[in-house]
Design a protein around this nucleic acid. Structure first.
Length: 910
RNA sequence: GCGAAAGUGGCGGAAUUGGUAUACGCACUGGACUUAGAAUCCAGCGGAGCAAUCCAUGGGGGUUCAAGUCCCCCCUUUCGCACCA
């Protein structure tokens, strides 16, 4: 008795992984070689990238999902004939390594490299189609030296600078953080409360690019609106007027910023930040002085505030438009680091000003009213006590009117719309020299100093004579010293390491001290996608060996003399065609990376404006309703599942259980379902193996000839094709004699090919692609049950083989190992990756009847079978003969009208 | 508070353009095989009802011959921002 072949995922996966990695199946060249161009026709490039992992120890389900999605896209694009760059690396600087070092007395570098080794094995076990030759380890000086080079060049252009500033401090991580890294007043990494510190910090001048970062969002049509909106809000552009108010009885002026110049006549006080440089000068009483000190103290500790508080300075300012004397308040809700740190307060038309005015009994003066002059809509109520006084004065607003409207009580501007008045009043202010129109951004410069060890050293020394001086480019890299000790308290070990701190000034040669802060680890991830475009590192100095990638060979329009990547290669591969990662990086990483590529562009390294053309933000993997975490005890280790079911199963489930943008609820029983499906595929292939590979039914000669033409054109350059596979057949003549049932299945396959293609091209709802494949496999089982193999003829064999091969190819991006194996079992003459996407094949068989839903007054009453493409009248007549319909409609004369959707439904109105 | 997205069986989710709601999978129930179990296979599976039918896509209105899908109001959940003048 013939022994039945069982699905042995372990051997199958090992076999194909060995082949892929030994043969470097997924390696590509930096620039396409000649054989990638066929007859002058360029094979199109496709750069598929997933956010690279931090080597924290082991792969988790979030990684599995992320990389399964990316791999599905990469493999699909290869099938479609693209030249695909699909790299991977490790974002290996960061706090966990250092924390582990403190906790377990290990060395961060060793710890990191060990983790990378582990994770690399895990990733390879997943069978991901990476070009491993391009692996990046960002904590290696061969990577970060370039970052130091960029820093120096940015410093020289004023894009990197140091200033004393109020920065976010996380006591638990013992370092400062950028604004983007503070989430609702808490540290993005550890969740501790953030306090404010005044420190000298290095910044990248991202604000120089604020306008471009904002306007380019409009061109990112391949990004989710949600992410674009988050970035837009984060950049927070606002246009307004900066206006000078003279301080009464003093020679000084106070500059304020407003976006509502149209409300200038409604200003009833000015408010300035407690941290405003003029704050103390304006104070007139001892009492105010004491209260102000308290406000300042609080503002220095934290940005959070529970309640609006303020104090009247005793000083007044003059409204330049009407000469009105306005009290100046110091108010805790006015931010020093936005606009000018001072505002004109219009309580009638601003919520915050209103709240403050209520609290301190300041006048509220309405100057805008609803376009329809409907006062009622302004939430005004009569003050019953003050009966008899002028109407305007006895009215009291219960809430501010925030919208645009028509100006009232505004001198010559009365009657204008808000929009007109904004312009007119701004122009007037500019004419008289007391104001100018300005644009403000909420975005702040990116603070990149970190008071930690395990990061890229900032290549700066402080010379007693020359001040802050960047290192000479040829002295890079500035290596991170390894002989450090971790105390777990206080400052970074670098700050105490004299052998590191003591340096020579690159300018005067005198004594100097090194900067001991390291860079934010988001700097490494801001340009790694560009590094990947060049396979091997370029020589640091141009005069050394390799000239293959010489930057001077290209049309350099800059003074770039050395680069981590070949400009040509970067320009060829970038932007990344599909980027995939977690939505948690919507603002931080994705904004920094966009900024950085613009800087690299302006420094002359490449000619690309945006790093990521299309972005897919995948949801979290959750279990029992919450994110997997050790503390919740709901972590599922991918390795355990891979050992139990194989990686195809794990990949399949993570793609099948939910569309990628949604959160994925992990379900171990569901994993078994995926496993069962894979076995089902394998078994059906084995079932037909003997029959389909029988020499007696080998394809006729012309079968191959027919394809050769097309296939060669598409695949040459990928790999030499020994022979051509029988999956893509252009002419249905071969199947004329085939079984009708098979033809029906083929018709369904054609629908699936089409549908899968649209899903794989942008919506990425792999779950629906997989489910239609499941349906088709079920149908084939059904067919097998009803049809004895001995009754099948040659035509049936060809068609069946086409159907099975096509399903294997469609599923290959998700479960590559088993599909490769099955494809081989069915006698594929090449590996499945070179098979090409299945072609729609007409067998000449057309279904001539269809099912038509019959509705009466919009309610489904019956279903009939009718000839395809029947006319309305015929369908109506046919419907009226139906038993169920007869019950409701006895006579055709009752029918008022009917609506007919061809081949779908008829709605009879009675 | 502001902004965005979402709400469909017991569960994950289908229904891409308004046209037969609940595909596919999980769980569950019954049956076959088995000494028994596991695995597998077969059948059933939104709710009510003997049935004909009726009711169901968070709730309420509306547009339409026809609404999960479009419009308005409300509720809930998730995410982002939170004094940015």
């Amino acid at each position: 008795m013939e022994q039945e072949k069982n699905y042995d995922f372990y051997s199958i996966e090992k076999k194909w992984q060995n082949k892929w990695y030994n043969e470097k199946t997924y390696s590509v060249e930096d620039m396409p070689l000649d054989n990638v161009n066929v007859n002058g026709k360029n094979k199109q490039k496709f750069y598929c990238l997933e956010m690279f992992p931090y080597p924290s120890g082991r792969i988790h389900m979030g990684h599995v999902r992320n990389y399964s999605i990316g791999d599905a896209i990469a493999r699909y694009k290869r099938l479609k004939g693209y030249y695909v760059l699909h790299p991977i690396g490790f974002d290996s600087f960061g706090l966990p390594a250092e924390n582990a070092a403190i906790k377990n007395n290990t060395n961060p570098k060793e710890w990191t490299l060990k983790n990378i080794e582990t994770m690399e094995v895990q990733l390879k076990k997943l069978g991901l189609s990476y070009d491993w030759d391009r692996k990046i380890i960002t904590s290696d000086s061969s990577y970060y030296k370039w970052e130091q080079l960029f820093f120096i060049q940015m410093y020289k252009k004023g894009l990197a600078y140091k200033k004393l500033s109020r920065v976010n401090w996380c006591e638990s991580c013992h370092t400062t953080l950028a604004n983007e890294q503070v989430e609702s007043g808490k540290c993005w990494r550890c969740g501790s409360e953030i306090t404010i510190k005044n420190m000298e910090q290095w910044f990248f001048k991202i604000t120089d690019y604020a306008e471009e970062l904002l306007s380019e969002l409009d061109n990112l049509s391949g990004w989710p609106d949600k992410v674009k909106l988050m970035q837009k809000n984060w950049i927070g552009k606002s246009e307004g007027l900066s206006l000078l108010f003279k301080i009464s009885a003093e020679p000084t002026h106070l500059e304020i910023f407003t976006t509502r110049p149209d409300t200038i006549f409604g200003a009833t006080y000015l408010a300035i930040s407690p941290l405003h440089p003029l704050a103390k000068d304006l104070l007139k009483t001892e009492d105010a002085r004491i209260k102000t000190e308290e406000l300042i103290r609080k503002s220095l500790i934290s940005k959070e505030l529970s309640e609006k508080e303020g104090v009247f300075t005793g000083s007044y300012a003059i409204n330049p438009f009407n000469g009105q004397k306005l009290p100046i308040y110091i108010a805790n809700f006015v931010l020093m680091d936005y606009g000018t740190g001072a505002i004109m307060s219009v309580p009638a038309h601003d919520e915050r000003d209103f709240e403050f005015a209520k609290k301190y009994n300041i006048e509220i003066k309405q100057v805008i009213e609803n376009k329809n002059n409907e006062k009622a809509s302004l939430n005004i109520k009569k003050n019953e006590i003050n009966d008899g006084i002028k109407e305007d004065e006895i009215q009291e607003l219960t809430s501010p009117f925030l919208e645009d409207g028509i100006l009232i009580n505004s001198s010559i501007f009365t009657g204008l719309t808000s929009e007109e008045a904004k312009k007119a009043i701004s122009l007037e202010a500019e004419k008289t020299g007391i104001g100018k129109r300005v644009i403000n951004y909420r975005l702040k410069d990116w603070g990149i100093s970190r008071q930690r060890y395990w990061g890229c050293p900032i290549p700066i020394v402080y010379c007693e004579k020359c001040g802050a001086v960047p290192l000479n480019e040829e002295d890079l890299p500035l290596e991170l010293p390894e002989n450090v000790t971790f105390t777990g308290k206080g400052e970074s070990p670098l700050a105490k390491l004299e052998s590191f701190i003591d340096a020579c000034c690159p300018v005067c040669g005198g004594q100097a001290k090194r900067e001991t802060d390291t860079m934010d680890t988001f700097v490494e991830s801001s340009w790694y996608y560009a590094k990947y475009t060049t396979k091997s590192g370029l020589p640091f100095n141009l005069d050394s060996n390799s000239n293959l990638h010489s930057i001077n060979n290209c049309d350099c329009d800059s003074a770039v003399s050395q680069s981590p990547f070949d400009k040509k290669a970067a320009n060829y591969w970038l932007p990344v065609d599909q980027y995939i990662g977690g939505v948690e990086h919507a603002v931080m990483h994705l904004l920094y990376a966009r900024f950085f590529i613009k800087v690299l562009r302006d420094l002359g390294y490449l000619n690309v404006n945006e790093p990521f053309k299309n972005l897919l933000t995948q949801g979290m993997v959750v279990k029992d309703g919450s994110k997997m975490s050790k503390s919740k005890g709901n972590v599922v280790d991918p390795d355990d599942l891979i050992n139990k079911y194989g990686s195809d199963t794990v990949r399949l489930f993570s793609l099948f259980a939910a569309p990628p943008e949604k959160d994925l609820e992990w379900n171990n029983k569901g994993v078994e379902g995926s496993y069962r499906f894979i076995i089902k595929i394998y078994k059906i292939i084995i079932l037909y193996e003997h029959y389909l590979t029988n020499t007696a039914i080998k394809e006729p000669k012309e079968f191959n000839e027919l394809e050769k033409f097309q296939e060669i054109e598409e695949n040459k350059g990928m790999k030499e094709l020994k022979e051509l596979l029988p999956s893509a057949i252009l002419d249905g003549n071969f199947f004329k004699e085939a079984d009708t049932e098979l033809k029906k299945i083929n018709n369904e396959l054609n629908g699936i090919i089409k549908k899968s293609e649209t899903e794989m091209e942008g919506r990425f709802h792999f779950n629906t692609v997989i489910s239609s494949c499941m349906e088709l496999v079920n149908k084939i089982y059904e067919y097998n049950k009803n049809k004895n193999q001995n009754d099948l003829n040659k035509s049936d064999a060809y068609l069946l083989k086409h159907i099975l091969n096509s399903i294997l190819i469609i599923l290959y991006p998700f479960i590559p190992h088993v599909c490769s194996e099955c494809f081989e079992i069915l006698g594929g003459n090449t590996d499945i990756e070179y098979a090409g996407w299945p072609k729609i094949m007409e067998t000449g068989y057309k279904i001539d009847t269809c099912n038509i839903a019959v509705q009466i007054n919009g309610k489904l009453r019956s279903q009939i079978t009718a000839n395809i493409d029947s006319e309305q009248q015929d369908i109506l007549n046919l419907s009226l003969e139906d038993e169920k319909i007869k019950k409701n409609i006895s006579d055709i004369s009752l029918v008022k009208k009917s609506i007919y959707i061809k081949n779908k439904l008829i709605n009879i109105i009675i």
